[in-house]
Design a protein around this nucleic acid. Structure first.
Lengths: 245, 245
DNA sequence: CGCGTCTTTGAGATCCGTCAAGGCCGGTGG
DNA sequence: CCACCGGCCTTGACGGATCTCAAAGACGCG
């Protein structure tokens, strides 16, 4: 829990919670919310800090208020694979299970809305609609994980990188459609380092870098400072994401 | 739905259901079971037949009574990845979602206990404990899928094949510990073809075959007719499953 | 016994990882 | 303001693991 900081939760109904209309907290009845609000504590984490370590048993459950988290697994020899990225409104922590198989680290600054696991489970038992929402999330997560499983098993590096860019774009679009200002649709800020992209796509930094360069030379994307990426040819990208040759 | 066959469900409380003590059906109250039993229909499928096609919207939900099913995704150019194997007591079908992203096909003969999706969801709403069980299953499934994601992203073919054999072994052990006769602990019947193993591990048939041969020459396994595999050196296999060099 | 399918084995091509060097950029201190 | 430093990113050369293509062998089934 390095780099963390306990904050008080002062907002009624979490009306100002940036996790916003997407989280499992919204649309709760007064009774549900009351039970939850007595448990929740906001905590702040610096970019790069570790929240949960692989095989940790601390029993945290939390909702991501802001920022991006990576979940990864590692072998003794240092090989690492990122198995999931979490962002606003996503859930962190394994309910009904003693230990986590994943390490959780901050890609950016992160604010979490934390709950102690056991009491949170008691609230879930009392309010099945809440668990229902978590169930839906788990199923969507499973579906997306299978899509990446497909990619790592059967797709070549150009396709994986193209998929990653499209994923970033979709991610940004859904956030913006949540009612904020829309900037240039084809302009991305990529919070991830080349290393993180590589660990997610099952590649090396060099391969990822080469594929970015190839896309740039082909006029599909344009690379700007501060990890900003401009999508110049969306259709080409979509084609590349499922074409081997 | 080729090769299917509707059977009647004659058993009270499904006491003779081979999905047995592991399924979500067991340990139900009388009320829960009564609601379910009015919906369920057993169906039989031949080995190799297709149950659900990718992007199908039929809205099936089912519990596997016996046999093994593969869930896979495919690209237009024919590349295929198996994303999950289902066996006794596992659940098939996407609840609360119109379409399936996976094709479901029978690896062996299969008997399903089928429910129409919408009415089943109504039962879930009425009996949250049932949905709770499904939630736990979904989380375990997610965890296992992440483990394979790790393998496909970061492990070499010898490690993947070793993992697969250990997975088969674990699968068999948990089934036997469910109270049936224990045969030779190190003797496996592998229901899967080389092609299916390859599609699961993100490799080609040839690579899988070569790895099997290498394990045989190294004295780690012994290959018998009818896809039977004998594990001669379990420790070596465990070591190989996470050693790159 | 003969056929088709699945599996094994080999040879060559390819993609990607490894190793190494250099470039870019922001931060720090003179 | 500029020089230096360290981390991140890019690029190139090479080697190795795996894929592709091809053929032969094993097995199950009629």
């Amino acid at each position: 829990m390095s780099g963390s900081n306990v904050l008080s939760v002062s907002m009624s109904r979490c009306s100002r919670c940036p996790a916003g209309s997407d989280g499992i907290c919204c649309e709760l009845s007064e009774a549900q919310f009351k039970d939850l609000s007595q448990l929740m504590r906001h905590r702040h984490f610096e970019a790069g800090s570790q929240i949960v370590h692989q095989d940790d048993t601390s029993g945290l459950f939390a909702i991501v208020v802001s920022g991006t988290i990576k979940l990864s697994r590692m072998l003794p020899d240092g090989r690492r694979q990122i198995v999931c990225f979490l962002s606003e409104a996503d859930c962190l922590g394994d309910l009904y299970k003693g230990i986590s198989h994943d390490t959780a680290e901050c890609v950016t600054e992160v604010v979490l809305c934390c709950f102690p696991r056991k009491p949170f489970e008691a609230v879930l038992k009392k309010h099945p609609e809440l668990e229902h929402r978590l169930f839906l999330r788990a199923m969507n997560n499973l579906d997306e994980t299978r899509e990446w499983l497909f990619a790592l098993g059967r797709k070549k590096s150009p396709e994986r990188v193209a998929m990653f860019l499209l994923w970033l774009l979709r991610k940004k679009d859904t956030r913006l459609s949540d009612g904020s200002n829309l900037s240039d649709a084809s302009f991305l800020h990529c919070a991830f380092s080349r290393q993180e992209i590589a660990d997610f796509l099952g590649l090396t930094v060099e391969t990822v870098s080469r594929q970015f360069s190839k896309l740039r030379r082909a006029g599909v994307i344009s690379l700007h400072p501060d990890r900003c990426i401009e999508i110049l040819d969306l259709e080409a990208l979509q084609l590349l994401s499922e074409t081997s040759s």
